[in-house]
Design a protein around this nucleic acid. Structure first.
Length: 268
DNA sequence: ATGGCTAACAACGTTAGA
């Protein structure tokens, strides 16, 4: 049986629970990972998920901002939430689910955006982002490499030149600076992760998952970035079947500025 | 270089997003 995983920075799950329902009806992922739920756990809108068979739910939310949630049609065998940088903020949820006669661990991560100024000595948010990426690397250093594992989320870094609308113009813009892209690429390499989206797109093809709210016409200006990612470890890489960026949701009424990414992993 | 938008909330401005 194949495994379909989706990740979506929803930018307020309460405001867009209806949109999430439409997405689930169309794509039927086995697991949906949300980021920026902006919702305390006791106010999370569970009904649309339960109604569609997503009975296993791991919430790591907080009031007002950040927050992640993992919702699954397969049962959780184990769950975990990690506190990065000792901040006590809601940026990680891990679940283990049955798959192909064994099990898969799935990490749902929301990396800090990093503020405006790409200088850690004057911008605490950027310092936090770099420290977060460093901690992720130390934590994932080989721990999942040989096991079936998936890492998804809004990593807030567009690692490759074709992951932004203009490589040259974004080299000094937070999300695409060399200190960020080098860190993300290093942590990907040390865990031997396969970038499932790039796996299906040639390196020169522009691929985006986020478009600013500030453009008059997001599609016409197309100044996007690829900030949302799905990575898999080697035991799963050979089973990758497809990857899709669901950019249609960006044109829905009152959309999130991020769109879903969906990856299908075939039977073992 | 600038400007422009959206969301939450001790809510009509501030903080956060990227």
């Amino acid at each position: 049986m194949s495994l379909t995983v989706a990740s979506w920075n929803i930018n307020s799950v309460r405001l867009r629970s209806r949109q999430v329902g439409l997405f689930l009806d169309r794509y039927r992922p086995d697991v949906l990972c949300l980021q920026e739920t902006k919702c305390p756990d006791n106010r999370f809108p569970l009904k649309p998920f339960r109604a569609r068979g997503y009975s296993d739910v791991l919430l790591n939310g907080q009031k007002g901002y950040h927050g992640v949630a993992t919702l699954s049609r397969r049962p959780f065998l184990a769950t975990n939430k990690r506190d990065f940088c000792g901040k006590g903020d809601a940026r990680h949820a891990a679940v283990t689910i049955p798959d192909a006669g064994g099990e898969v661990t799935l990490h749902n991560v929301y990396v800090p955006s990093g503020g405006d100024v790409p200088d850690p000595t004057v911008n605490d948010k950027f310092a936090h982002k770099l420290a977060f990426l460093d901690e992720m690397k130390a934590w994932l250093n080989g721990s999942e490499t040989d096991r079936p594992a998936i890492l998804v989320g809004d990593l807030n870094v567009a690692p490759h030149p074709a992951d932004v609308w203009s490589h040259k113009q974004l080299l000094d813009v937070v999300s695409h600076t060399p200190v960020e892209t080098e860190r993300l690429n290093a942590l990907q390499a040390v865990g031997d992760w396969t970038d499932a989206i790039r796996h299906f797109a040639p390196p020169e093809e522009k691929v985006f998952t986020w478009w600013s709210y500030r453009a008059r016409d997001w599609r016409a200006s197309n100044r996007g970035r690829r900030l949302d990612h799905i990575w898999v470890t080697r035991p799963l890489a050979g089973r990758l079947e497809s990857a899709e960026i669901v950019s249609a949701t960006r044109s829905w009424k009152r959309p999130s500025d991020h769109v879903p990414v969906v990856v299908r992993i075939g039977s073992a």
